[in-house]
């Protein structure tokens, strides 16, 4: 039993879990975050609100890590980056579930 995903805008969290070999991002982030926001256990849109409130605490070009385990955050943080013209650096799985979602402040 296997499942292959072909093309498309986005991978679902399940797809990432099911096929770690196909995830584009490396397992470890290349650049350590300047700020980590712990939104574990918080439901969307709270993680996004926390990110929007605090992104300006890092310098332009700096990276913020959002720790979140609401599946909606996996899609919504990158979508927020696109809408707000910040950069989604990558989403890295956390050992106990959820992701560390890295965002670069662009302006």
């Amino acid at each position: 039993m296997w499942r292959r995903r072909t093309g498309g805008a986005r991978r679902s969290p399940e797809a990432v879990r099911a096929e770690p070999a196909e995830v584009a991002e490396p397992v470890q982030p290349a650049e350590p975050p300047a700020l980590t926001i712990d939104a574990l256990g918080r439901k969307c849109p709270i993680p996004i609100i926390m990110l929007a409130e605090r992104i300006n605490q890092v310098a332009t070009g700096g990276v913020v890590a959002v720790l979140a385990d609401d599946p909606a955050a996996f899609t919504d943080v990158p979508a927020w980056c696109r809408l707000k013209s910040h950069e989604h650096v990558g989403s890295y799985e956390l050992p106990h579930g959820g992701w560390s979602i890295h965002v670069r402040r662009n302006y």
């Binding site: 805008a9 899609t75 979508a79 696109r82």
Partner: peptide
């Protein structure tokens, strides 16, 4: 799953 697959805001 539709909004997820599109990569748009789900909330």
């Amino acid at each position: 799953h539709v909004l997820e697959a599109m990569g748009v805001l789900t909330h």
